[in-house]
Amino acid sequence: MDAVRIAVGIKRVPDMEARFKIGADGKSVDEAGLKFDIADFDSYAVEVALQITEKQGAGEVVVISVGPDVVQETLRKALSMGAARAVQLQCPAVPFDGLSIARALAAELKDGGFDLILFGKMAIDSANHSVGPMTAELLGLPCVTAASKLDVTSKPGVGTARRELEGAAELLEFPLPAVVTIDEGIARPRYPSLKGIMAAKKKPLDVKPAQLGAVHLSVTAMALPPERSGGRIIGEGAAAVPELIRLLQTEAKVL
C-alpha cells in the first residue's frame, strides 16, 4: 500500500456533563443551552486515522457526517485536527434509525476507493453500536467492531486488530478494504493547533443530500430517569464498618 485513504464517520453530540431537559414535544432532548462536539469515540477514530496516514507518510483522511448544517462545525473540528476534506450528507435532522444513517454513509462510501473506513464503537448520545457494522454489511466489507488496537501498515493489504470481549480479547486478521469501529484506549485525540484551525477554514467541505431510505423505527417519548435517592452517610472511618455490614445484611440484603 502506498498512499492510504481513510474515511471516518463522525457524529455531532451534546456535551454529556449537561443537565438534560426534555423538549416540548415530549420526544426529544431540548437543545437550548447545550454545547456540542464530535462524539468521544469518533474523535479517537479521527486520531487513529491521522496516525495511520502519518505513519504511512502518504494518504488522506476524509471525514463524513450525516445531519443538518450544524454538523459542519463538527466536520471543521476534524479538519482542524488534520483531516484533508469533509463531506456533509445533508438531512433535516439526524435519524434515530441507525440503518438510515448507514444507508446514507454506504451510498457515499461505495465508490470512494477507501482502504479503511473507521467509526466510533458507539455514538455517545444514541449508544447504538450499530452504524459501523451496518455500513460494513451494506458495503459487503469485512468488519471488526470495538478495536482497541489496529495496524494496517505493517503488511500490505492486511489489517490486524485486537478487540476486547467481556473478560477476554481476540486478536484478528482481515483483508483491506475493511470497516473498523474504534474503542477507547487506542489513541488520545489531539487538540487542534492554531495553525490547524486556520488551515481548516480553507479545506474542502462538500454538501450532498443524504439518501436515508425508509425508516422503521420512531422515538415516541423521551424521559428523564427517576433520580437516585442516595446521599446517606452512615459514619466515619473504620468505626462505621459494623453499621455498614448490618445495613448490607438487613436492609439491602446483599450479604
Binding site: F20, V29, F96, I124, D125, V219, T220
Partner: peptide, 11 residues
C-alpha cells in the same frame, strides 16, 4: 441514551 441521563421510548 445520553449516558443514561435520558431514556428513549422507541417503537
Amino acid at each position: 441514551v445520553n449516558t443514561g441521563k435520558v431514556v428513549a421510548t422507541v417503537s
